[in-house]
C-alpha cells in the first residue's frame, strides 16, 4: 500500500506495542491469578503460578450456583438481541426511507434513551417488573436492556440502510414483490453485515451491563456477573475463584470478536463512514 501506512512505521509500531501491552497486562494478571492457589496469591506476587491449579475452574463448572449464572446471562443476552433486532429492522427502514410527522423528534427521543443513565431506571424498573410478575426472570432483564439496545440498533441499521440505493426498492415493487417479501428476500441480505454489526453491539451492551441485571434478579435468573459479586463477599475474599470466574466471563466476548474480526473495522463505524 501507499504513503499512508508507512510514514510513521517505526514510531507507529512502538505505539502499538506499548498500547497492546497495556491492554494485555491486566488480563494476563487475571489469568495468572486464576491458576494459582489462594495460598500462593496471598503469600506474595509471583509472575507465574509456581504450581498450576485448576481447582477454581473445577469449582465453577461443578457448582450449579456458579454455572447457572452463565446460562442465565447468555439467555437474557440472546433474548435481548433477538427482540432488539426484530423490532429495530422495520423502524430503521422507516427512518431511512420516509419522512413522517415527528420523525426528527422521535429519532432524537429514541437516541436519548441510549444515553439515559441506568441508575435512574433501576428502582422504577424494579417496581414495574415486580408489578407485572416478570421480576427475577430473564425476560425482565432482556426487556429492560431494550431501553438502550433498541435505539442503538435502530441507529446502526438506519446507517447501513441509507447506504442502499432507493432504486432497489422501486425496482422490486415494479417486479411485483410485496413489501414483506421484498424486505426479507432482497433487502435484508443487502444489509446483512449491518444486521451482524447491530447484533454484535446488542450482545456487547447487554452482556456487559450489570446495574439493571442485578436489580431485576434475585435467585433464579441471577447473571454470572452478579454471582461473582455476591458469592465472593459472602465467603471472604476468594481471589482465585473470583479471577477464574472473571476469566470465564471474558471468553464469550472473545469468541464473538473472533467470529466478527473481519467486520470489526466497518462495524465500529456503525455504517456511517
Amino acid at each position: 500500500m501507499s504513503a499512508s501506512s508507512h510514514a510513521s512505521s517505526r514510531g507507529g509500531t512502538l505505539v502499538m506495542v506499548l498500547y497492546l501491552a497495556f491492554l494485555i497486562l491486566p488480563i494476563y494478571w487475571l489469568v495468572n491469578m486464576s491458576l494459582k492457589t489462594n495460598f500462593e496469591i496471598n503469600s506474595g506476587v509471583t509472575l507465574w503460578p509456581n504450581e498450576i491449579t485448576f481447582e477454581h475452574y473445577i469449582k465453577i463448572f461443578t457448582d450449579s450456583s456458579w454455572y447457572s449464572g452463565y446460562i442465565n446471562s447468555l439467555t437474557y443476552v440472546a433474548l435481548n438481541t433477538v427482540i432488539s433486532i426484530t423490532l429495530a429492522l422495520p423502524a430503521a427502514y422507516a427512518f431511512s426511507r420516509y419522512s413522517f410527522v415527528g420523525e426528527k423528534h422521535l429519532f432524537f427521543w429514541l437516541l436519548s434513551n441510549r444515553m439515559a443513565p441506568p441508575a435512574v431506571f433501576a428502582l422504577p424498573f424494579f417496581n414495574l417488573y415486580s408489578a407485572i410478575g416478570l421480576f427475577d426472570t430473564p425476560w425482565a432483564v432482556a426487556l429492560a436492556h431494550c431501553l438502550f439496545n433498541v435505539p442503538l440498533a435502530v441507529w446502526i441499521l438506519e446507517g447501513f440502510m441509507s447506504g442502499v440505493p432507493r432504486e432497489i426498492d422501486e425496482t422490486a415493487a415494479i417486479d411485483g414483490y410485496s413489501f414483506p417479501r421484498f424486505f426479507v428476500k432482497i433487502f435484508m441480505p443487502l444489509i446483512a453485515s449491518g444486521i451482524g454489526v447491530a447484533a454484535f453491539f446488542c450482545f456487547m451492551f447487554s452482556w456487559v451491563e450489570l446495574l439493571l441485571a442485578r436489580t431485576l434478579t434475585a435467585t433464579n435468573a441471577k447473571p454470572i456477573a452478579v454471582t461473582m459479586t455476591r458469592t465472593v463477599s459472602a465467603a471472604g475474599m476468594d481471589w482465585g475463584l473470583l479471577a477464574a470466574a472473571g476469566v470465564l466471563t471474558i471468553i464469550p466476548g472473545a469468541l464473538v470478536i473472533w467470529f466478527v474480526r473481519n467486520y470489526i473495522a466497518k462495524g465500529f463505524a456503525l455504517g456511517r463512514v
Partner: peptide, 14 residues
C-alpha cells in the same frame, strides 16, 4: 483488532 476489542466485551464489574 481482536486484542483491542477485548476490553470492550468484558462485563463492567469484571
Amino acid at each position: 483488532l481482536v486484542i483491542m476489542a477485548l476490553p470492550l466485551l468484558i462485563p463492567w464489574n469484571v
